[in-house]
Write a protein that binds this DNA or RNA. Structure first.
Length: 565
RNA sequence: GCACUCGUAGCUCAGCUGGAUAGAGCACCCGCCUUCUAAGCGGGCGGUCUCAGGUUCGAAUCCUGACGGGUGUACCA
């Protein structure tokens, strides 16, 4: 339910009734429980403009407020705040509705759009490393979120499969023969070996350079080798996606090389648009106010990543028909995207009404605030990090429960991977973040385990209860009131998170929800003796709605839940 | 040099479309298990929101400047 919108509508109506003109009317969540559920602060701002006392204005609004059964109490406080308390019966009915609905009462967009989310983007010449983690999971979350809200999401994995290094790699692959398949298991090593061969052997280096040209000119033999190489490398990525539980498949791959044929046209079109200039032999677009140009064609005739990105933008906007194109890429590339987006719009490659956004994120750091590396200074392979997460999770869930080995393995996988993802997504994506195993696999604070634990506790109640729950939700006390309102806010949170492409808004919400639930759980017994049937049913339903909200929230983040923990 | 970005409790972070006494978790101290998972809950300690100005009835939030950290800065992606 779009709760805030509903409350807003009431206030807007009150304004209309009172005959007061105001351009933007927005209620906000109450800053404290004692101020109710929502508050409207606009009276103070209007005071000057209307030349009236703000409390007077607030009173006028209140006099014209039609509560419609939704608002129980409205009070003026302080200099002119209007505090609103929702009616418990209305809240209960709304929760009831959510509980009986398989989408938790959350609607789908009335005006869905096509949205392209570009994320992950590994380089086929190298193994995926920790640097790819954030793009992959933030992008996946955004895609899941938009999809859940009803947009038509097109996932695009813009893999790096083109460039001079592939000449060297396929020359080496050829030389290795059948053995190559085996040694390709470790791409990092393969690359190093190929490189040292390249540096040591002049004849090999020549061949590598020759192969670059041959791939580009479509030589069948070299293309076959290249395809084989990409295929194996992509297979490694898929292994990571599988472990990470990310919704990316081969169908989502739209590689750099896909745009090869259109690069010349990009340059040509820029020229036609009168935007092209030659500088030091390179074809450039000079944007007003920018010091450095966007180079779209090198002096040697080759194209660059800006050219490919322009081609991709054209494709996404015009062929795929996207109205929102989101690039989930490291913040260090913000300059690049700012320029490319400008060029694309100015050249008319992308219609005006298409939203282009760079969903930038910061760097992953170690405990000392240095870029995350292995002990010997190398990059940490993503697959190793994920495997370690599962091992550590296994150690962390030294349980009171007796798990079978199989069950333990399953829980460790969900919990370990979930912890890595949650810890990352819980951070405001724009800032750098410190990777800390201990914090990540803690049960305390805003961690995935805290959510998992709450979920498991609820499932445990239902296992014990053992019957279907049918009945009515009744808001029994202040705590249940707050929990219920929090549950109803879910849709607002999702919409805002989608708009801002901010997964941490979802984690923050889940943490608040679960914190409230834990208090409810401690204070309001459900199955214990002495709880009357109506109360029991109502609390069961609130608990169930909470569990389902946690599950749905985590699902959007790409994290599964376990019934026992 | 220029541009972007960040600076909130000892540590890790929320909050930033301006609103009431700035919030969590960790760490530290104190309470709560004979019945729903104590991996939990309650309480305490801890802040000139880097600094200086400005706008405003009201600023952690917006603007300007300084200081400090990070990043980028034409033919790699």
């Amino acid at each position: 339910m779009k709760l805030k919108e509903e409350v807003n509508t009431l206030i807007k109506k009150a304004f209309a009734n009172a005959g007061i003109e105001a351009d933007s009317i927005t209620v906000t969540d109450a800053t404290k429980p004692e101020f109710g559920d929502y508050q409207f602060n606009g009276a103070m701002a209007l005071a000057k403009q209307l030349k009236q006392n703000p409390r007077q204005i607030a009173q006028t609004i209140l006099d014209n407020l039609e509560t419609g059964g939704m608002v129980q109490k409205a009070e003026i406080a302080g200099p002119g705040f209007i505090n609103l308390w929702l009616n418990p019966e209305w809240i209960a009915a709304s929760c009831q509705n959510a509980e009986e609905n398989d989408r938790l009462g959350i609607g789908t967009r009335s005006n869905p759009i096509k949205a392209v989310v570009d994320y992950s983007g590994p380089n086929m010449a190298k193994q995926m490393h920790v640097g790819h983690l954030r793009s992959t999971i933030i992008g996946d979350t955004l895609a899941n979120l938009l999809e859940f809200l009803g947009d038509e999401v097109i996932r695009q994995n813009h893999i790096g499969d083109w460039g001079t290094q592939f000449g060297m790699l396929i020359a080496y692959l050829e030389e290795m023969g059948e053995e190559g398949n085996g040694s390709l298991k470790d791409l990092e090593q393969f690359y190093k070996d190929a490189k040292s061969r390249f540096d040591a052997d002049e004849a090999f280096a020549d061949k590598a350079r020759e192969y670059v040209v041959k791939i580009q000119s479509g030589d069948a033999h070299c293309l076959t080798l290249w395809k084989k190489f990409i295929d194996i490398s992509l297979g490694h990525c898929e292994e990571v996606y599988e472990k990470l539980d990310v919704n990316l498949s081969r169908d989502d791959v739209r590689a750099e090389s896909f745009y090869n044929e259109t690069l010349a046209k990009v340059v040509e079109d820029l020229d036609k648009a009168g935007m092209l200039q030659e500088s030091d032999g390179a074809q450039c677009v000079f944007l007003e106010g920018d010091e450095v140009p966007v180079i779209v064609r090198k002096s040697d005739g080759g194209y660059l990543y800006a050219t490919t990105d322009l081609a991709a933008l054209y494709y996404r906007a015009n062929v795929l028909g996207a109205k929102r194109i989101s690039y989930v890429v490291d913040a260090r590339q913000s300059g690049h995207f700012k320029q490319v987006f400008r060029v694309a719009k100015e050249a008319g490659f992308v219609p005006e009404d298409v939203k282009l956004e760079h969903v930038a994120f910061g760097t992953m750091m170690d405990k000392n605030g240095k870029p995350f590396k292995t002990r010997d200074g190398g990059t940490v392979k993503l697959i190793d990090l994920l495997d370690e997460a599962v091992v550590r999770a296994k150690a962390a869930i030294t349980s009171k429960e007796n798990y079978s080995e199989e069950e333990l393995e399953k829980i460790a996988r969900i919990v370990g991977i979930g912890a890595v993802k949650y810890a990352d997504l819980a951070i405001n994506r724009e800032s750098n973040y410190i990777f800390d195993w201990d914090k990540m696999l803690s049960f305390e604070g805003n961690t995935s385990l805290y959510m998992q634990y709450a979920y498991a506790r609820i499932q445990s109640i239902f296992r014990k209860y053992g019957k279907d729950v049918e009945g009515e939700i009744v808001i029994g006390d202040e705590l249940e009131h707050r929990l219920a309102v929090m549950l109803l806010r879910f849709e607002d949170v999702l919409n805002k998170a989608a708009e801002d492409a901010a997964p941490n808004q979802i984690t923050t919400y889940l943490y608040e929800l679960v914190t409230l639930f834990m208090r409810f759980y401690e204070r309001n017994p459900i199955l214990k003796e002495g709880v009357d049937e109506q109360t029991r049913i109502s609390r069961l339903m609130l608990a169930d709605l909470t569990a389902r909200t946690i599950k749905q929230g985590l699902a959007i983040l790409g994290i599964q839940v376990v019934d026992r923990l």
